[in-house]
Amino acid sequence: MIRTLTAAALTAVLALPAYADFEHRSSNDDVATVMDRLEQAVRAAGAMVVARVDHSGAAEGVGMELDDAELLIFGNPQLGTQAMQEDIRAGLFLPLRILVYRDGDETVIFWQEPEEMLDDLDIDDDAEYLERMEEALENFAEAAAG
């Protein structure tokens, strides 16, 4: 019994750092409103919106239910290209993404930190463009939260 509890506790502790790689903000507004603000903030900053994916709409289209959830895929080639010049495999993770979903009474704005997202690649953790990506994500999330 003690071994089982110890193993479970160790597994839980080891799983914590992975979640620490993510950031989030909350809003009291519905997903569509938050996504509209997010998309507007991205465009106003001069970044390119690649796609807006309606996960719950796609689920509905195949007769399944899913709480409201949308994903915005966007990027700034001036920043993303620098990452790909250092390591072309960064293209697997770029452009950037922010997920907006309904969780009970709140809407969550959720994204992964670029430094952590690209951590296993040959990219310097202190690269200036990573800081700029993180700042942009935080600014976009704040604007989306309202």
Rank of each mutant, 00 (worst) to 15 (best):
residue 8 A to K: 08
residue 9 A to K: 07
residue 10 L to R: 08
residue 10 L to C: 10
residue 11 T to Q: 12
residue 12 A to H: 08
residue 15 A to G: 10
residue 16 L to P: 05
residue 18 A to R: 09
residue 19 Y to R: 12
residue 20 A to Y: 01
residue 20 A to W: 08
residue 21 D to Q: 14
residue 23 E to Q: 14
residue 23 E to L: 09
residue 23 E to W: 02
residue 24 H to P: 06
residue 29 D to F: 11
residue 29 D to W: 02
residue 29 D to G: 11
residue 31 V to S: 00
residue 31 V to L: 05
residue 32 A to T: 15
residue 34 V to A: 04
residue 36 D to N: 15
residue 42 V to I: 15
residue 42 V to C: 02
residue 50 V to W: 10
residue 50 V to D: 03
residue 50 V to N: 09
residue 55 H to L: 13
residue 57 G to S: 05
residue 58 A to L: 14
residue 59 A to Q: 08
residue 60 E to K: 15
residue 63 G to N: 05
residue 64 M to T: 09
residue 65 E to S: 15
residue 67 D to F: 04
residue 68 D to F: 05
residue 69 A to W: 07
residue 69 A to F: 08
residue 69 A to S: 12
residue 70 E to C: 04
residue 71 L to N: 09
residue 71 L to H: 09
residue 71 L to F: 09
residue 72 L to N: 06
residue 75 G to Y: 02
residue 75 G to L: 06
residue 77 P to E: 00
residue 81 T to Y: 03
residue 85 Q to A: 12
residue 86 E to G: 06
residue 88 I to H: 12
residue 91 G to K: 03
residue 93 F to C: 07
residue 94 L to S: 03
residue 95 P to G: 02
residue 95 P to F: 08
residue 98 I to A: 02
residue 99 L to N: 14
residue 101 Y to D: 01
residue 104 G to Y: 02
residue 105 D to K: 11
residue 110 F to C: 00
residue 117 M to F: 07
residue 122 D to Q: 11
residue 123 I to M: 07
residue 124 D to A: 10
residue 131 E to P: 01
residue 134 E to M: 11
